[in-house]
Design a binder for these strands. Structure first.
Length: 227
DNA sequence: ATAGGGATTCTC
DNA sequence: AGAATCCCTATT
């Protein structure tokens, strides 16, 4: 919804509170824990065009340099530097030469963990998301159903690489409203192997470190053995 | 300097 | 099933 509202709500109606950004301490935990706790949280993007937001419904954990599926496997480089820094920052990278993907840095500066945000349930700025996604966007539930799709829908690219997610500027996380939290919690969490990491070998490639809200229509793809 | 390949998505 | 498309990392 854009443009001035007129005539309806009383001037005393409080504006919808955006909710305050998650503090650094919320991110200072192992990637596996953070990946699960991010499910049901609200990801908010604000730019010149207004507010774009959604509920996180799918994540993947990347542990650190020993994780053969993680970009941190080659140690600290220019590209992966954010992962080797403090928790609560963004690690945004370009994949296949054309798609941005968003990670949330976990742990502490001594451990290069991160969580890939793989899918959102769109909640705010749907008109703009449809426009950004173009004719291929499909139904609204699919506008941010994938790590690159959500970056396109929320106008996230490498200009936000290294961005501090705890300040409430441009990109941050908040708790969802209680009704949404309850709905997501009731659905339950499913786990499965991470997507697109066969190069990591069987050990690391098959670990069930992908997490999702069971049966949610905005998942990037189904989980293998949903139970 | 250069080669090999990618935490994806869309179309054929 | 194949392309798009650029940057990263490792190697020469």
């Amino acid at each position: 919804m854009t443009g001035p509202t007129h005539g309806h709500g009383s001037p005393r109606d409080p504006p919808p509170a955006p909710g305050r950004p998650w503090p650094r301490s919320a991110f200072e935990r192992p990637a596996l824990d953070l990946a699960r706790s991010l499910l049901g949280a609200r990801l908010v993007r604000e730019d010149e065009g207004g507010l774009l937001a959604g509920i996180i419904v799918e994540t993947e954990a990347y542990a650190g340099p020993e994780d053969r599926a993680s970009h941190a496997r080659s140690g600290r480089t220019r590209r992966t530097a954010p992962m080797f820094g403090p928790a609560g920052h963004a690690y945004v990278y370009l994949v296949y030469g054309m798609h941005s993907c968003l990670n949330v840095v976990s742990d502490g500066a001594d451990r290069a963990g991160a969580v890939l945000i793989r899918a959102l349930e769109p909640t705010d700025g749907l008109d703009r998301m449809r426009h950004r996604r173009g004719a291929t966007g499909g139904p609204d539930a699919r506008l941010a159903a994938g790590p690159a799709r959500l970056c396109q829908a929320l106008a996230i690219d490498r200009r936000l690489d290294g961005h501090d997610l705890t300040t409430g500027d441009r990109l941050w996380l908040t708790d969802a409203d209680p009704h949404t939290v309850a709905r997501i919690a009731d659905a339950g969490i499913v786990a499965g192997p991470r997507v697109g990491v066969a190069y990591a070998g069987d050990d690391w490639g098959s670990r069930p470190w992908r997490f999702g809200v069971r049966g949610h229509p905005s998942l990037s793809r189904p989980f293998p053995l949903e139970s």
